[in-house]
């Protein structure tokens, strides 16, 4: 637990001092929403279908940007060697990295949600609590595998290029369920309608949190 807090705290302090990850993610989010605004024709009829899918497309694009940065920072001055030399549990290191990635994703996620609501002039009538739950579950699913794969991708020849290629096909269940649940919420669906999607999201999060923590040592020690 101590190691988890220490590594997480290190990441947060680092980010607070440089502000590079969250700021560039935020800037990219704004640009994306502006581009969507120009390229999409949104009216009352298609708003419920288009906005959730574009919201989640933006989230995974912006999220991938942040993911590839968090581990690149460790590589820059061989900081990762220092972490690996210290006798800490690799799964704790993994959880710490997931939490810091999750934090960044959550920040930009809600920024993106706000931007979409603001720029497309949407009145959010659905259940806001449910929307928050869906978004957090989606972000957790994205961060669990994102952390594992960004550690892998950064150590390959292709570097950041490989990350979206390996991450996107695997997180398809997250995307499907999150988009579906979000669009149901936007169109005023209740808990019973959203429940099957929520269940799959929860299952995905738990399964991959456990599996990734188990296999993380093999990935991180080959860096």
């Amino acid at each position: 637990m101590n190691t988890l807090a220490a590594v997480l705290w290190k990441d947060i302090i680092n980010e607070l001092r440089t502000k590079e990850i969250v700021l560039s993610m935020a800037a990219f989010s704004v640009v994306l929403v502006v581009i969507f605004n120009f390229s999409l024709v949104i009216n009352r009829d298609n708003i419920g279908h288009l906005v959730p899918s574009f919201l989640w497309i933006s989230i995974i694009f912006v999220g991938t940007l942040g993911l590839s940065r968090t581990f690149a920072i460790e590589k820059e001055n061989s900081a990762i060697t220092g972490i690996l030399i210290s006798p800490i549990d690799r799964s704790m290191l993994y959880f710490a990295k997931v939490l810091s990635n999750l934090l960044y994703v959550l920040i930009v996620q809600f920024l993106l949600l706000f931007l979409f609501l603001f720029m497309f002039n949407i009145n959010l009538t659905g259940n806001i609590l449910m929307l928050i739950i869906v978004m957090v579950l989606g972000a957790v699913g994205f961060s669990t595998l994102g952390t594992l794969f960004s550690t892998m991708a950064i150590n390959t020849k292709l570097r950041e290029l490989l990350l979206p290629v390996i991450l996107f096909p695997v997180i398809i269940p997250v995307i499907i369920n999150a988009v579906k649940a979000t669009s149901l919420i936007f169109s005023g669906g209740g808990y019973t309608e959203i429940k099957p999607f929520l269940n799959i999201l929860i299952a995905f999060d738990i399964i991959f949190l456990v599996t990734s923590a188990l296999v993380y040592e093999f990935v991180v020690e080959e860096s």
Binding site: M152, T156, I166, F208, S212, V215, V219, E222
Partner: peptide, 9 residues
Amino acid sequence: KYSAVFAII
């Protein structure tokens, strides 16, 4: 190792 991890996931 990388491919084994990916195959499992």
